[in-house]
Design a protein around this nucleic acid. Sequence first.
DNA 1: CGACTGATTGACTATACTCAACTGCGGTGG
DNA 2: CCACCGCAGTTGAGTATAGTCAATCAGTCG
Lengths: 216, 216
Amino acid sequence: MLAYTTMPTQLRSNGIDHPIVPLPFGPAHLQQISFFDPGCEIYAQGEKAGNIYQVEFGAVRVYRLLADGRRQISAFCLSGEVFGLEDDANHHFFAEAITGTSLRLFPRSKFGDISQELFSLTLRSLTRAQEHLLVLGRQTAVERVAAFLLDLAERQGGLEQVELPMSRMDIGDYLGLTIETVSRAFSKLKDNGIIALPTLRSAEIKKWNALQAMSE
Amino acid sequence: MLAYTTMPTQLRSNGIDHPIVPLPFGPAHLQQISFFDPGCEIYAQGEKAGNIYQVEFGAVRVYRLLADGRRQISAFCLSGEVFGLEDDANHHFFAEAITGTSLRLFPRSKFGDISQELFSLTLRSLTRAQEHLLVLGRQTAVERVAAFLLDLAERQGGLEQVELPMSRMDIGDYLGLTIETVSRAFSKLKDNGIIALPTLRSAEIKKWNALQAMSE
DNA sequence: CGACTGATTGACTATACTCAACTGCGGTGG
DNA sequence: CCACCGCAGTTGAGTATAGTCAATCAGTCG
């Protein structure tokens, strides 16, 4: 549950990392790199928002909580992806490392003008959130899981082997489902031969077309 | 179902409009104003995205469709609010006027640099979408309707009289519910004395605290 | 090897959906 | 001005999907 400023080498490779495209803004000497253990908090709701974060390797969940503990994960961030953009001085969300995670920090205050790149990243986040609204508002459990797997597969380079750094609980809280329903949806896809589940934390897409059809 | 470039005067006042804050970017001579009849399409999914739109008066729904016709409304836009921001050359969503609506158009191509204001608007849209994820993913039907009414009330200036320019179908497609469930939720809130429904297209908030409590 | 945690499966329940009947508001025409 | 019509909305009954609670299984780490 600690953040490091030196790199614990055993964290370097977890199978799902690939070369990232560094963010094109901000002078390099202003960028700081930090390491987070699994479960480690990156920022909390209400905290002052000062940085933008890019994942070097690892995975991050960004989420909100209701008073009674219900949780909605709004995004998983993988290598090369960016989070921490807020419309306010304070964070409205929590961010936590899922696995051992390395982050590149960009202090907002040090930016001069808003770059076209930063704007594009924000628009991409917006589109992603809006697409996810369709999933949560209008899709069944199996459709949500199918769409989730396709999304992850695409973000990991389109390989059929998909790594799942997050728990079933995380997936449920992302898809608006319980862990049992997530599990049943995985089982159904497996029973139909559409996916295989070689380990708990990976999936193999066997029938892309069928999965695509299920996600609509 | 038509768009005008002159103003049909009978559309001017529908009770929910208040003075808007004009967008602070773009020279005035580049801004164009258009009028849309109820149900009129403003843009379609796949269409080339060239403009940003600000609502002068009226109301707009922005939505996506699944192949089988299931619809998810990602946002309702009221006076002063902005939509049409896309991360791509083409629109990913549909936008339609709900009531008679006047829009101020800002051609993207005519902007020079990305202004701080435009960036802020985008971040606000992003936060709004992410907050809505929590509603769709983790709240019950009554909680969704309560949150919806509070949100509308706040955006209309915090008055207890809330105008509902959209149909129950629209509300359902925004909240991920059927019209029947929306109707039952309204009735439950009414039966508990939390709201009144003077007409089909308006609601009166009687017990703010109770409504707030129901929305969590 | 054993204990612990996370995941799966099963049985039952609750919430929201579907289908259908009915109500009432709003608009039109006599 | 009132009566009628049509459609949006409401209400009811039955169903289906996902949630809850509980038991079992599997993978991980001492």
